[in-house]
Amino acid sequence: MSKHSTDADVAFIKALAEILNTHELTEISVKRDYAEDDSLDVRVVKQANVVTMAQAPMMAQAMPAAMPSAGAPMAAAINDDPAQHPGALTSPMVGTAYLSAEPGAKPFVVIGDKVAEGDTVLIIEAMKTMNHIPATRSGTVKRILFEDGSAVEYGAPLMIIE
């Protein structure tokens, strides 16, 4: 990480994100050296919407309740954006998301768990730092929207807590 934060670094990162979108890439990694012990490592990742086999049965169970009325378009029910859900917990940073503190350990939460505001629900590793991510509200974990160990981007919905 650079010892100095400059507007040029921010512009550089924004330019990388623009290149990512323009060229339909999923990831860009760049290292920018400033001096012998001063550099900036940037990894920009675009999260794809992936449905894992574990999520597929849950989606099938939820689908009848989400079916539109006779006059509503079917796409509205299928393309429901979890980021717009009032109980969405979104990623505060780019990194790798984990459901437990270490491999093989009990996960912080599973679907159906009740959590209190401030409880750690996952960890995001960013620049070799493990960041504990707290629940933003009290409630029940209804959906987990990422796969353990997957890359997440800033603002990506991670969980639904109702």
Rank of each mutant, 00 (worst) to 15 (best):
Val45His: 09
Ala151Ile: 01
Ile78Trp: 01
Val115Gln: 08
Ala15Gln: 13
Ala156Asp: 07
His132Leu: 08
Thr140Cys: 09
Pro86Phe: 10
Lys142Gln: 14
Ser39Glu: 13
Lys106Met: 09
Gln61Tyr: 04
Asp81Ala: 12
Phe146Asn: 06
Glu162Gln: 13
Thr22Ile: 00
Ala151Tyr: 00
Ser5Arg: 00
Leu40Trp: 03
His4Asp: 15
Ala97Leu: 04
Ala75Glu: 15
Lys31Asn: 04
Gly87Trp: 07
Glu24Pro: 02
Ala8Pro: 12
Thr26Met: 00
Leu20Glu: 03
Thr136His: 13
Ile13Thr: 09
Pro134Ser: 01
Ser5Leu: 07
Ser5Gln: 11
Val115Pro: 07
Val121Tyr: 09
Pro86Val: 02
Ser29Met: 14
Ile111Lys: 13
Ala62Tyr: 05
Ala8Met: 15
Gln47Arg: 03
Ala48Ser: 12
Val51Thr: 14
Leu89Tyr: 00
Ala88Met: 04
Val42Trp: 02
Asp81Trp: 11
Ala126Val: 08
Gly149Asp: 10
Ser39Asp: 14
Ala72Gln: 03
Asn21Val: 09
Ala62Arg: 04
Glu36His: 15
Ala70Ser: 14
Ala17Phe: 07
Ile133Gly: 02
Gly95Arg: 00
Ala65Thr: 07
Asp7Pro: 08
Val152Pro: 09
Ile78Gly: 06
Asp41Tyr: 00
Ala54Glu: 08
Val152Gln: 02
Leu158Trp: 13
Gly104Thr: 08
Phe12Asp: 14
His132Arg: 11
Leu122Trp: 09
Asp80Arg: 12
Leu20Phe: 06
Pro134Leu: 11
Val42His: 05
Thr90His: 10
Thr136Gly: 14
Met159His: 06
Pro73Gly: 10
Asn131Val: 01
Gly87Val: 14
Ala60Thr: 00
Met63Val: 03
Val10Tyr: 13
Ile161His: 10
Arg137Tyr: 13
Phe108Pro: 08
Ala35Val: 03
Phe108Glu: 05
Arg143Phe: 09
Thr22Arg: 15
Leu40Phe: 06
Ala62Lys: 05
Thr120His: 05
His85Glu: 10
Thr52Gly: 15
Asp119Val: 08
Phe108Ile: 01
Pro57Trp: 03
Ala101Cys: 04
Pro134Phe: 02
Thr90Phe: 14
Ala62Glu: 04
Gly155Pro: 08
Leu16Cys: 13
Thr96Gln: 08
Pro73Glu: 08
Val152Glu: 03
Pro64Val: 05
Thr140Lys: 02
Ser39Asn: 10
Glu18Arg: 08
Asp119Glu: 15
Gly95Asp: 12
His23Tyr: 15
Leu40Arg: 02
Ala156Val: 02
Val42Phe: 13
Val50Met: 05
Gly118Tyr: 14
Ala54Ser: 12
Thr52Trp: 12
Thr136Phe: 11
Ala62Pro: 04
Ile19Asp: 00
Gln47Lys: 01
Ala135Trp: 07
Asn131Thr: 06
Lys128Val: 12
Lys31Tyr: 01
Ala11Asn: 13
Pro157Gly: 04
Asp148Trp: 01
Ala126Lys: 12
Val121Ile: 15
Leu89Pro: 03
Arg137Gly: 05
Met58Pro: 03
Val141Gln: 04
Ala35Met: 11
Pro134Glu: 01
Lys46Pro: 13
Ile78Cys: 04
